[in-house]
């Protein structure tokens, strides 16, 4: 028997990108652009003897959230690690540019929802993927400069790594669950390059303490923490759409201050419990162990809020 709460609201982590979209948007409002039947696929995977996907692992389109139009992008972390590549990246970039072009017109949207689930750049298409990340950053900031918030939703299997970590931090607002992970260089790559002494990637608790959702939201790398079900992500997306900082010089100056302060306050810490202790948390070692309700209560007590992203 499947528990009732799982039937009502499936896990974000376990869901496919298509199911996440269906769960985030109002029912039957999703209009996919360049859907699978268009067969817009990677021209490069064949060179590596790898099977392609009809959507190249990225689903883009329009829909509604609480009756208001939104643009939506979802990466499928199970296909090639949800990577940025020539086609998958161009779909993201094309949508973001179209959103900017439509800003202020009747075709405009109220927000862009970016459902990240990515290991970063697809190495089989490394140069195209790297450029796709850079183009995504520029197009995304164009959307924000046009006054439209971009909300990142992070809680998938592949996390938001590499260029995906950079793209996440370019968004107006970041929503994350306990299972969400954000980082640039993954623990395995650090271990390969610098040794297990620097970062033991098999120490899962350590990996989560460094990259996981709770640490990110406590430190300011994410803005909203949600339970890991699809309905919670939907509710947070709707809420945060109205609370996103504009992309301005003032916001960047505030972010500069926020990030400098973090470096001077915690730059000599070795592990996150050290940071939480210095930040005045009553029981820093318990942060990974308490349940989501207790963690949410802890967050609301501390009122971790900033308008600098």
């Amino acid at each position: 028997m499947i528990p009732e709460e799982i039937v009502r609201s499936p896990s974000w982590y376990e869901s496919s990108a298509r199911n996440r979209i269906a769960g985030v948007l109002d029912a039957d409002t999703f209009h996919e652009i360049l859907g699978p039947a268009e067969r817009v696929m990677s021209p490069h995977l064949e060179l590596f003897d790898l099977p392609p996907a009809f959507d190249d692992g990225v689903i883009v389109g329009r829909g509604q959230l609480d009756g208001k139009p939104v643009a939506i992008i979802a990466q499928e972390g199970q296909f090639m690690g949800g990577t940025f590549a020539e086609v998958s990246g161009a779909k993201i970039v094309g949508l973001l540019r179209a959103v900017t072009a439509a800003a202020g017109t009747p075709d405009g949207v109220s927000a862009v929802l970016l459902l990240l689930d990515t290991g970063g750049v697809r190495l089989q298409e490394a140069n195209a993927g790297e450029l796709a990340v850079s183009e995504t950053v520029r197009a995304l900031l164009g959307v924000r400069a046009a006054g439209i918030p971009v909300v990142a939703l992070v809680g998938g299997r592949a996390g938001a790594f590499g260029g995906g970590g950079i793209v996440t931090a370019c968004c107006s607002h970041v929503v994350i669950s306990e299972q969400g992970r954000i980082s640039v260089t993954g623990p395995e790559v650090i271990e390969t390059n610098k040794g297990a002494e620097e970062f033991d990637s098999r120490d899962r608790a350590l990996v989560w303490r460094v990259t996981g959702g709770r640490s990110r939201v406590l430190l300011g790398g994410a803005d909203s923490y949600v339970k890991g079900d699809v309905a919670s992500f939907r509710a947070a997306a709707a809420r945060s759409r109205n609370a996103a900082p504009p992309f301005t010089l003032e916001t960047m100056a505030a972010e500069q201050e926020r990030l400098e302060k973090r470096l001077s306050s915690y730059g000599d810490c070795r592990d996150t419990p050290e940071i939480w202790a210095r930040a005045g948390l009553a029981d820093p070692a318990s942060v990974p162990d308490i349940d989501d309700d207790a963690f949410l209560a802890l967050l609301s007590e501390r009122e971790i809020k900033h308008d600098a992203r």
């Binding site: 938001a160 950079i166 370019c170 260089t185 430190l219 960047m252 940071i275």
Partner: peptide
């Protein structure tokens, strides 16, 4: 590539620089 930089949110620092240049 260090654990310390990732812990401090290197992704935010890199993104901040990219944002400011943009």
């Amino acid at each position: 590539m260090t654990r310390r930089d990732e812990m401090l949110g290197l992704n935010e620092y890199l993104a901040h620089l990219a944002k400011v240049v943009t």
